[in-house]
Amino acid sequence: MIVFVRFNSSHGFPVEVDSDTSIFQLKEVVAKRQGVPADQLRVIFAGKELRNDWTVQNCDLDQQSIVHIVQRPWRKGQEMNATGGDDPRNAAGGCEREPQSLTRVDLSSSVLPGDSVGLAVILHTDSRKDSPPAGSPAGRSIYNSFYVYCKGPCQRVQPGKLRVQCSTCRQATLTLTQGPSCWDDVLIPNRMSGECQSPHCPGTSAEFFFKCGAHPTSDKETSVALHLIATNSRNITCITCTDVRSPVLVFQCNSRHVICLDCFHLYCVTRLNDRQFVHDPQLGYSLPCVAGCPNSLIKELHHFRILGEEQYNRYQQYGAEECVLQMGGVLCPRPGCGAGLLPEPDQRKVTCEGGNGLGCGFAFCRECKEAYHEGECSAVFEASGTTTQAYRVDERAAEQARWEAASKETIKKTTKPCPRCHVPVEKNGGCMHMKCPQPQCRLEWCWNCGCEWNRVCMGDHWFDV
Rank of each mutant, 00 (worst) to 15 (best):
E79K: 09
G93F: 12
L341S: 12
N428V: 15
T388E: 14
G336H: 08
S9V: 02
K27V: 03
E395N: 11
D39N: 09
F4G: 07
N254F: 09
H227S: 15
P281C: 06
M432F: 05
R6V: 04
K349E: 08
I306Y: 03
A363T: 15
H433Q: 04
K211V: 15
S286Q: 01
E382S: 13
T387Y: 11
K349S: 09
A397Y: 09
Q71A: 06
V5W: 02
E367K: 13
K416E: 08
Q63F: 07
F251V: 01
E395Y: 14
C263F: 00
G430C: 07
L41E: 01
K220G: 13
H433L: 04
C451A: 15
Y312N: 04
W183I: 00
V15C: 05
V423P: 00
A397T: 10
V456I: 15
G385D: 08
Y391D: 05
R140E: 12
A398F: 11
C59E: 00
G213F: 05
A172K: 12
L162Q: 01
C260E: 00
Y315E: 00
R396G: 10
K27L: 03
L261Y: 04
R305C: 07
E404W: 06
P14V: 02
V105S: 14
G118P: 14
R89D: 14
Q25C: 05
V15Q: 02
P419T: 04
Q78H: 11
E395I: 10
C451V: 15
Q71V: 05
A206C: 05
A320P: 09
A134M: 11
T83W: 13
I229Y: 02
V224E: 14
D274G: 04
Y143G: 06
A398T: 10
V117G: 15
L102S: 10
F264G: 00
Y372A: 10
A371L: 08
P216W: 06
A397N: 13
L341W: 07
E322R: 04
A363Q: 14
T410F: 08
V30P: 00
H302Q: 15
G35M: 06
L342Q: 08
S109G: 14
P132V: 12
V244G: 02
K408A: 10
D62K: 14
V70G: 00
A371N: 10
S218I: 09
P113H: 09
V248W: 01
S127F: 10
S22K: 14
V111A: 12
Q100I: 08
